[in-house]
Design a protein around this nucleic acid. Sequence first.
DNA 1: TTGAAAGCGCTAACAC
DNA 2: GTGTTAGCGCTTTCAA
Lengths: 343, 343
Amino acid sequence: MSSIQDVATLANVSAATASRALSRPDMVAQTTRERVLNAAQQLGYQPNMLARSLRQRETRTIGVIVTDILNPFHAMLAKGVQDAADRHGYTAFLFNTDEDAGKERRALDTLRGHLPQGLIVVPTPHTHENLKLVPNLPIVELDRVTGNTGVTTVTVDNIGGARAATAHLIGLGHTRIGMIVGKLDITTAVERHAGFRQMLEESGQTYFPELVLPGQHREKDGREAALRLLSLPPAVRPTALFVGNNEMTVGAVLAARELGLKIPEELSIVGFDDSRWAQTMTPPLTVVAQPAYDLGVLACDHLVTQLGHMQSGRARASPARVQLPTELILRQSTAPPACVPTA
Amino acid sequence: MSSIQDVATLANVSAATASRALSRPDMVAQTTRERVLNAAQQLGYQPNMLARSLRQRETRTIGVIVTDILNPFHAMLAKGVQDAADRHGYTAFLFNTDEDAGKERRALDTLRGHLPQGLIVVPTPHTHENLKLVPNLPIVELDRVTGNTGVTTVTVDNIGGARAATAHLIGLGHTRIGMIVGKLDITTAVERHAGFRQMLEESGQTYFPELVLPGQHREKDGREAALRLLSLPPAVRPTALFVGNNEMTVGAVLAARELGLKIPEELSIVGFDDSRWAQTMTPPLTVVAQPAYDLGVLACDHLVTQLGHMQSGRARASPARVQLPTELILRQSTAPPACVPTA
DNA sequence: TTGAAAGCGCTAACAC
DNA sequence: GTGTTAGCGCTTTCAA
């Protein structure tokens, strides 16, 4: 690995001049610049970021913490962030926590040692506490929200999405609609539940608490919850299910299959978050789709903007609250209930 | 951010001693050590990796380059690598290239600036060339292979997997078996194709070149290829399809649906690489499953071992050729052909 | 067992 | 326009 000193020597200039020629071309004479550039090229010179960052006290690096990289939604978030970071000349360090407080803490510590200039995080219930490990770090919360004030958040309109899904089911004539909701310590779950309930009540429908079951976001939780709901006596069994995330939706569909319930004839299902899986299963699922890639991009754009403000010494911009709309995609997993109850 | 100097001052020792107390506890008096540890804790001291790496000329960092983080197979590889790296005390930098030579080059340049000690890469056809950007970097090739000698490779037994899939179809009585293969500039595609052909010929079956169509690994390529194969006149149309990767398998299934072909009654399909999607679609797909997570872990383990050898000055270990078995998972997308041709 | 000093590669301040 | 010098935070000689 050749250093800038090597380049300088080869170009017959001092290291300082070589440095300038490479990073501030206009501070250097035309001919000198050319000689340095040549030398650099010839040696395949690549600046040592460790040294540069150490000196400049800025790494042009951001951290990204996601809770489940195997979930296509999160993979898409991460990709959006990384693409955007790249465009802005930043490098993104990606960490995965599996929703685990300890892993998150370790990720933050590792990150801290590398002096990222900002952090984009999909928060868990522990994040609020864990973030004390990285004081003064500009943060953008992505997809979910901790309640931290002074932090930019980039989320989706979960309430609106849930309302749309619920309205759709109501419009089809369902009166006993169940919901499988995530753990209520996560804001997306809370909001989706709220939207569901709101829409039921605004439409003059009854909200049946016993038809709302929480899960831990995993497929098996979705399956178990669905199994319980769908095993209720026919008179009270829900004829439609709104499921709060993509993983649990898989489980709910599997449960319906196990019980031999035909979708959508005997059971309508709406999932939250679209996926390849939702599109290609039989029948294709009606879902509330989220612009995952754009969420990632926006989170990064906002973070970078904020970093720019800080650097140029301007007052810290007030934290943004970005919210993107969802889209209800009608496919074939929803239909009017088999036997419409007498009105 | 407090520095080691702050810790030292607080503990009434020199920076050197503080450093030793933290990284070489046994070189320091018991009581001194305790004072330093206390001070560090009190200040929430976290060593600055940039400075440390610069000084030690070793970053305890590895690069990971994957071609499509949105592909669950690659996400799983990445996760395996990251988990293993973490266990070994290394930090993994993940990059995504979308199979694009330019992105790969940029990723390598960025990586180089951060001085990783090794690289795990899922190679593309350009990788061989691009790797010249990082001379002397220990490399492990993952999933695919460039033909670089002197490089450790961690792959799956693609030939064996393809043979098993083909044997299964032959065993069911299929005599016109088509294959949708990836671009033949990628070793996995070449090997899967070879296994397919081998098994046909060993079984005394005819290998029909016109039933083998290449694709670019994407869903739409799979769909188009399948559309062409399945639109052949009934007499020559394949009754079974072996598809070379997971994305293209999705496309093939969609094509069959578009043409109204029932799976498995009118068309058997075997995919390469399992996925959630393959498990939950109707019918669930018979696939050649790959131990993606383990591949990632092994790649990292081997890389780290190699790094250890280098550091301890031992002769560089000869490059390993790790190959993991695949597993044919029988589900419901394969069945005997509708009308068995007279033998 | 500890401290002083040097230096990893780079760039910014300050000469000239 | 260019060179000299200093120093980012850390670890590692080398002395004491």
